[in-house]
């Protein structure tokens, strides 16, 4: 190893002691957890008389953030791959509508398949336009946002589609699995699978590589076009499941379900430490990002702010958190 000393000593690769580990620790990446704890403690003290800490309220926070969490898991892949998907909210709405209509027409399984088909079709179109034609995902999915919500409104003539199938409603959001609300189980499953696939599979690694340096990924033999297609397909599929969770929880399909969720999901992903420029993604971070947004929503309601004030405070907190988490 005698040649090692000829290399520049100022670069790392020296043995690590605790001090250097602490210094190298990228605390900005963990700002979401700090922020989560701070906001939680803040509300716990301020709103203790309003029942913030009651088990019921805490479960409510999980329940209310479940759909955002699910959408944001898919969004993490898209953003880590240096793309964006603005169509997820409308896909959820369209999926809720298609599920409800197919359900009343043909029954449970066709209903679920119809919802998934929405994600499959929209995700494939998004993916194909981005990867094959090279159109920026921002534009493709912005267009798709309008198309999906328009189709949903059109085929229902703007009318809500009630869902009377109890099995579906119980399974997708209204029911509990034992003592645990179904929505919490759904988000736990998506987070767990999402985290393992992103961190521990070749596919996940290739998503990060494509987002981190597309040329390098290409020269390493990764089919980056296929990866970009796949992340947009995943995002669409996941959003369609989120749409069914809306449908089950609210026992109806409606084109408005999920509207605006793309922005909450993107905020959750960025708050969670995933780089908007691609190359790094954290599913657990995304979960906490979504929970933080849910926490803020819940706290502001309990604090008695009206919805216009909530929007202002929520916006300010998100900007603050992202400012703290940004790169040096």
């Amino acid at each position: 190893m005698s040649n090692a000393k000829t290399l520049a000593p100022r670069d790392t690769a020296a043995p690590r002691n605790f001090g250097t580990i602490l210094k190298e620790l990228d605390w900005r990446r963990y700002v979401i957890y700090i922020g989560f704890v701070v906001v939680f403690l803040f509300f716990a003290v301020l709103l203790r008389d309003q029942g913030f800490l009651s088990p019921n309220n805490l479960l409510n926070i999980f329940r209310q953030t479940a759909t955002i969490t699910v959408i944001a898991v898919g969004m993490t892949y898209v953003i880590a791959c240096a793309e964006i998907d603005l169509s997820v909210g409308s896909v959820a709405g369209l999926s809720s509508v298609c599920t409800a209509m197919a359900l009343s027409q043909w029954g449970l399984v066709p209903g679920i398949l119809a919802g998934l088909a929405v994600g499959l079709v929209v995700g494939s179109i998004n993916g194909a336009l981005v990867s094959l034609l090279g159109i920026p995902s921002f534009l493709v999915t912005l267009g798709m946002l309008g198309i999906a919500v328009g189709v949903a409104q059109w085929i229902t003539a703007s009318a809500p589609q009630p869902i009377l199938n109890d099995t579906f409603n119980t399974l997708f959001g209204s029911g509990n699995f034992g003592p645990v609300p179904g929505l919490v189980v759904w988000s736990a499953i998506f987070v767990a699978i999402g985290a393992v696939v992103l961190n521990r599979t070749r596919f996940g690694r290739q998503v990060l590589a494509t987002g981190g340096n597309r040329n390098a990924a290409e020269f390493t033999g990764i089919n980056t076009k296929r990866i970009k297609f796949q992340v947009l397909l995943i995002s669409g599929m996941v959003a369609s499941v989120a749409g069914m969770l809306y449908a089950g929880r609210l026992q109806s399909g409606r084109f408005q379900w999920g509207s605006g969720d793309e922005l909450s999901a993107i905020a959750a992903v960025i708050l969670g430490g995933t780089s908007l420029f691609g190359g790094f993604g954290s599913i657990i971070g995304t979960l906490f990002g979504a929970l933080l947004i849910g926490l803020i929503n819940n706290g502001l309601i309990l604090a008695g702010l009206d919805s216009s004030q909530q929007q202002v405070v929520r916006g300010a907190i998100i900007i603050l958190a992202v400012a703290l988490a940004r790169k040096k």
């Binding site: 690694r205 990060l208 340096n213 390098a216 190359g279």
Partner: peptide
């Protein structure tokens, strides 16, 4: 190389 990955992750990428 992919800057956001580690040395080992880059070496064995794909």
């Amino acid at each position: 190389l992919v800057p956001s990955l580690t040395v080992a992750q880059n070496i064995f990428l794909a």
